[in-house]
Write a protein that binds this DNA or RNA. Structure first.
Lengths: 346, 346
DNA sequence: GAAGATCGTTTGAACGTTCATATCCGACGC
DNA sequence: GCGTCGGATATGAACGTTCAAACGATCTTC
């Protein structure tokens, strides 16, 4: 068995050196430290490299130099009930940003029966990657604690603890929410509800806190409504309760576009016209919102800037050993669309 | 600058050998060929491996053995106008399937200014990966031609050419569509339209051909309607044209859920009740369809089976040098929901 | 009882690169 | 003329693993 095909021998540094009439090290320098070569030597060697199509063997390079040029991204589990459609866009941005820096992204996930920490340890111990990029960071996320203890480079989309590396980047959800509530207040609304998913996720809490701060600042009557679970059925049920109770809010701010989908569904069933009878705003700007009628007012996340900043911070740790002193907060951008109603609706 | 942190020396095979009182190779065998060891030796060595937390250095292993245990997945560009939400689910399935086989997934994308083939070549020449997993395969896909010429292992989600390795897996879209048209016909519909995105994508053509075959078989009046582009505006415009023209179809089969979203939007605007005035069916079963009212009849793709089959075929090529003689076709599963209307609607 | 055969283990080499150091060579200072 | 410097290139070693082959012990076989 295992009729392994004959090992595909590639072009090595030795081959290039022979053809160019220089030594191994000179070829290596042509790629890694071109300034050390006399211009004419560099040109000659480069020509031969091009001609033979030489690429340094990644394994050999890693073994000797200790650098892999690979970043691991522990993929959040994609719950079909609550597809983190944001993940698609974020991953996209991460791949682009790391590609530009000459790094590649390795998608990892714990094997069945393996804890998250064990999965990280395996990658560290086998020296497979140079660092980790984390997203969906929880409060007291065990992964952060573990990587901090191991002293292994990482960067996180979402705030880390005070005694952990401040290599995080996050969106100023609170401010974006305050702005959003301001827009709602400017349209004359007084009774406003925040629709949250329950689970105590940090980003949801930030958005809720921002909502509450906005409500306080603008002297509105604000109410927080939590959905017990993540699936459409539960969201619809909770939203219906909210919209059919007494003192129905005239505006709903949802903690995410996914929740806003439920608001649209219920509003339609109850004969409420969004933008007129009910103002709706949300968060994330998922692609699917392009289909909503009327178009949804929401907060757009600067995913490309986030990814770029994360990669930049991570590489600073990996390549220069410099850990950022403070996290980076980027603004979310409220995008006003008809679901909020005209400027002076009430 | 570059205050590179001191190289984190890990546990090596030598350390384990010393502690266990055996040779390097015996430790290596304990991991790679346990049957060669006397049971008691194996146990002793395993215990030391466990105790010291030894993991073979991936780079060293790759360098010597020529196998990387990494599969590259060229990530389709995630067009925000037509988010391949399927990609999320498929990628998910691929990561799971390859993880089970002990392989990891490297996400790759051509650098700016780099062609797809060049990006593949770079990975091949640098010996970074063992094989490629391709999706969104086009007719005469240049990537397939290139990998075939290079003799490099790959597996494709989508049919390959006749002179290329038959290492593909695909969904029997045509049959699923024929079945779907059967369901439509059984509900008494006679004028049926197929809504396609234009771009000449193989999977869309397969679905269209299946539709036409179904229409012929059931003696219906079938019409194919192509949307010039992919963004919501165009889809809505084309759909409106279709639904407001004379001889309006009583049933629409969309080439994808994304297109069906347009049908829902237009139907609502035109006052047509889906499931009563208009039957709607589609393809893909994206998560977002959970929000549609009434629920959408669509074709579910066996993404996990597909991913498993792809990985299995790819590893057979990589590890055993065996190229499958024929492609594998898996059935799509029509899921009947209220959008199709009750069994005898007309 | 000697010549194989089998099993379990060890030994030396090799994978392809980069690090650390050495060597060469021309220029310069005294 | 001699020593010194500095830039450009070359040499030997090392990274940690697995391969290929050798080794020693125990078991068959005639």
């Amino acid at each position: 068995m295992a009729a392994r095909r004959p090992r595909a021998r590639g072009v090595t540094v030795e081959d290039v050196a022979r053809v160019a009439g220089v030594s191994r090290q000179t070829v290596s320098n042509a790629l890694n430290a071109p300034h050390r070569l006399k211009p004419e030597t560099l040109e000659r060697v480069s020509a031969v490299i091009e001609e033979l199509g030489y690429r340094p063997d990644q394994s050999a390079r890693s073994l000797r130099s200790g650098t892999r040029r690979i970043i691991a991204y522990p993929a959040p589990v994609d719950d079909p009930a609550n597809p983190n459609a944001l993940m698609g866009g974020f991953l996209e941005a991460v791949v682009a940003a790391s590609g530009e820096a000459g790094y590649r992204v390795l998608l990892v996930r714990p094997r069945p029966g393996q804890s998250q920490e064990q999965a990280l340890d395996e990658l560290i111990a086998a020296r497979t990657v140079d660092g980790f990029l984390l997203s969906d960071v929880l409060r007291d996320d065990p992964r952060l604690a573990h990587l901090t203890r191991a002293g292994f480079p990482f960067a996180a989309f979402g705030r880390t603890g005070p005694d952990q590396p401040q290599s995080w980047v996050d969106v100023d959800s609170a401010q974006a929410m305050i702005d959003m509530v301001g827009l709602v207040a400017a349209r004359g609304h007084r009774r406003v509800a925040f629709l949250a998913s329950s689970s105590g996720l940090p980003w949801m809490d930030d958005r809720r806190d921002g909502f509450l701060a906005g409500v306080r600042r603008h002297g509105l009557a604000g109410q927080v409504y939590s959905v017990p679970g993540d699936d459409p059925g539960e969201i619809v049920r909770a939203t219906r309760e909210l919209l059919t109770g007494r003192d129905r809010p005239t505006a709903i701010v949802a903690g995410g576009d996914w929740l806003a989908l439920g608001v649209y569904t219920v509003a339609r069933a109850e004969g409420l016209e969004i933008g007129t009878d009910l103002a709706v705003a949300a968060f994330d700007d998922l692609p699917v919102t392009a289909w909503l009628q009327p178009a949804l007012t929401t907060v757009r996340l600067p995913l490309h800037r986030i990814a770029k900043a994360l990669i930049s911070r991570l590489l600073q740790i990996i390549e220069d050993g410099v850990t950022p002193r403070a996290g980076l907060v980027l603004p979310g951008e409220p995008v006003v669309r008809p679901s909020l109603g005209p400027p002076n609706a009430l």
